[in-house]
Simulated scan of single mutants.
Amino acid sequence: MADAPIKGPASYFPAIEKKYGRPIAEWQQIVRAHLPAKHMELVAMLKNDHGMGHGHANALVAHTLAANAT
């Protein structure tokens, strides 16, 4: 049986790693280091401090916060 395609925010991860040159785990550490900031504050931090595009930043923050909530 073929692997199901990755959906949701994680579908951006290969492109994020390729474009910004860091593994997702490292980006998640950066996001977690800025908690308890709100979602859009974290997105703005990634955009302003690391030059990340809005879609990539939003996907990374959404996935990281969802993982923290479980």
Rank of each mutant, 00 (worst) to 15 (best):
A66T: 07
A66F: 02
Q28H: 06
R22Q: 10
P9V: 08
Y20D: 02
E41T: 12
P5K: 11
A33G: 12
A25W: 03
D49L: 14
L46G: 06
I30M: 06
D3W: 03
A25E: 15
A69E: 11
H39N: 13
F13K: 14
H50R: 13
K7H: 04
R22L: 12
M40F: 04
M52S: 10
G21F: 05
M1H: 14
G55E: 11
A25Y: 09
Y20N: 00
G53N: 00
P9D: 05
H56W: 03
M45I: 15
Q28F: 03
F13P: 06
I6D: 03
I24Q: 01
A15C: 00
E26S: 14
Q28V: 02
Y20K: 00
S11W: 00
S11R: 06
V61A: 01
M45A: 13
A25L: 12
H34V: 01
L60T: 08
A69K: 12
V31F: 00
Y12R: 12
P36Y: 03
L42H: 00
H54R: 05
A10H: 07
M40N: 14
A37L: 11
S11M: 01
R22M: 15
W27V: 01
A15M: 04
H34W: 01
A33C: 02
A44D: 14
P23C: 10
N48M: 04
M45R: 13
R22T: 07
A10Y: 01
V61H: 09
A59Q: 12
H56T: 06
R32F: 08
N58Y: 10
P14R: 08
S11F: 05
N58P: 08
I6L: 07
A66N: 02
A2H: 11
H54Y: 11
P23N: 08
K18M: 04
T64F: 00
R22N: 03
A15H: 03
H34Y: 02
P23Q: 13
L46C: 08
K38V: 07
R32P: 09
L60V: 04
V43I: 10
P14Y: 04
K47T: 10
K7T: 09
G53E: 07
R32V: 11
A25D: 15
A69R: 09
M40C: 05
E41K: 08
M52E: 05
E26P: 13
G21M: 09
I30N: 04
A37T: 02
A15T: 06
A67L: 14
N58G: 13
K19M: 11
A25H: 10
F13W: 05
Q29F: 10
E41H: 12
K38W: 02
N58F: 14
I24L: 04
M1D: 12
